[in-house]
Design a binder for these strands. Structure first.
Lengths: 173, 173
DNA sequence: AGGTACATGTAAGTAGTTACATGATTAC
DNA sequence: GTAATCATGTAACTACTTACATGTACCT
């Protein structure tokens, strides 16, 4: 939240959009958490609610204390979330699921990753067009992370499909 | 749980170990959840508790109904967990964190991924040695997924470090 | 006038983790 | 005998999501 507001002051609704559009490939917040968090931040004096006359709702902006807190939080050690990859879990127990179903999973994974690559291309163009000069290199690094991960998934899925096909032929012969 | 017990009957404690060792790079279960789950599965008649005379504890094995339920669950649509990558979040707001701290994060990411590659090599050898012929191709596919992801992370981190270094030189000149 | 997007919130429920508590078995 | 590991469980707490509820602004 603090990070989003550090880019520019905006409404809670806009924060939600920013998270699902720009940060969507590496971060998520549920809708029901944004407003309570915003209220808590306001109570702590980290954000300031500026009710704009014209439009409905209110723009929130970081206070100096909010900026300081953001820097603090960013410097905190990174806690990694435990992995939960349902696709790999299914493939691991592929023997019970059957080769055909596994092939479908892999084809879907390949197609998803290819579609993601296209989205990253668009996102990259957007960042180059919109981002501040100071932000741009960092934002591009996160886009690049997505691109590398997606490209790796395409390569992996193709390789895995070949493996299964080769095995299928062997047992069929 | 059902998947783990489908490989071979074992104690709850052993399931935990299997998850953290073999499935660790794509799945996790918290300790406090295994025994309640096991009890629930037993109540539903999906697993059978066989108390072995010699050792303490009891080996759990799948019942036919458990096997059927496993196949059902594996065929269910894959639900993807919302992404939460604290490292990318920090890099995205790298402007506030500073180039030096970001470089450290990237170096750590690169080193972690390189270490992961070594672990995957060992895991691959273990799978080849231990796995059933029917399981082997599927297990190797999941190891391969880890390898591809780790290799991509190494490449990405190196590329990102170069980007930051190039920019650092520019602004320093 | 009516639909779509903007905007803010709450309440109920679920999932999951951590920490605690206990005891058996094995190796030295 | 004692330390480490194996083994099973519970209870409290936290985080998070979903669904609901409500109203405003703008476009046609």
């Amino acid at each position: 939240m603090l990070g989003a507001l550090s880019v520019e002051p905006m409404t809670g609704y806009a924060v939600r959009q920013a998270i699902s559009e720009t940060l969507g490939h590496f971060w998520s917040e549920s809708f029901g958490q944004i407003y309570p968090t915003l209220a808590a931040l306001e109570a702590d004096g980290l954000v300031h609610r500026a009710s704009s006359g014209r439009t409905s709702g209110s723009r929130f902006e970081l206070t100096p204390a909010g900026h300081a807190r953001l820097r603090e939080l960013l410097a905190d050690p990174i806690e990694s979330t435990p992995p939960r990859n349902g696709m790999l879990l299914r493939l691991f127990f592929g023997r019970h699921l059957g080769a055909t179903a596994c092939r479908e999973i892999l084809e879907a994974a390949r197609d998803d990753a290819e579609a993601a690559l296209v989205r990253y291309e668009a996102l990259r163009a957007e960042v180059v067009a919109d981002a501040d000069d100071d932000d741009e290199p960092y934002w591009l690094i996160t886009v690049s992370a997505g691109e590398h991960a997606a490209a790796a998934q395409v390569a992996w899925a193709r390789h895995a499909l070949e493996t299964l096909d080769a095995r299928g032929k062997l047992s069929g012969a």
